[in-house]
């Protein structure tokens, strides 16, 4: 069983709830459950991850059992069931990228951030992980950063340095 921390109190803003309503309107009546994946993305974009409290609220909104949400959230790799760094660097680790040095980039990011895959840096800013093919193999190595899944292509150690310092700047300004 997954052990979860119940540390979050979750409130959905009116804006978010309006967004939910727009999403639900895309499906025929009685098929509101179709909205589950897009809604989970919206919730994660706001909260950074999906706590069980947040998932229970989504279940209540869609009028389905909480377990149906857990089943889905735990199936797909994009949903985080644990808190993450503010920026999660997701680097492709699949064959075609590895042919042109993805493994070295992943190792380099680990060294540079001083954490292991899945851990969060002490300042709470970064975590990273290897992910499977991102459909950008011709621009390899690549990484993406949620919640907008901005893409960074043809990575080199220099461009990784640059990216990390840019992100730090961004964080200190916000």
């Amino acid at each position: 069983m997954l052990k979860v921390e119940e540390t979050q109190s979750v409130e959905f803003s009116t804006e978010l709830v309006n967004k939910f309503a727009e999403i639900v309107s895309r499906y025929p009546e009685g098929k509101e459950k179709s909205a589950l994946l897009p809604i989970l993305h919206e919730v994660q974009a706001v909260n950074g991850w999906l706590s069980s409290v947040a998932m229970d609220k989504v279940a209540a909104y869609l009028n389905i059992a909480p377990i149906e949400v857990y089943e889905v959230a735990s199936f797909y790799s994009m949903y985080f069931l644990r808190p993450q760094g503010k920026f999660v660097l997701e680097v492709c680790r699949t064959g075609p990228c590895c042919l042109v040095g993805a493994e070295k980039i992943i190792d380099y990011i680990g060294e540079k951030l001083g954490v292991k895959e899945g851990e969060v840096t002490a300042d709470g800013l970064f975590s990273y992980r290897g992910v499977e093919c991102l459909a950008a193999c011709g621009f390899a190595p690549v990484l993406q950063i949620g919640p907008e899944y901005t893409f960074y292509e043809n990575l080199t150690t220099n461009s990784v340095d640059q990216l990390i310092s840019d992100l730090k700047d961004k964080a200190s300004k916000s």
């Binding site: 895309r26 994946l37 897009p38 993305h41 889905v72 199936f75 797909y76 790799s77 994009m78």
Partner: peptide
């Protein structure tokens, strides 16, 4: 015709 975009959740 109505056309909608549906996001997946990360699963080949």
């Amino acid at each position: 015709l109505e056309l909608y975009v549906q996001p997946g959740g990360g699963a080949y």
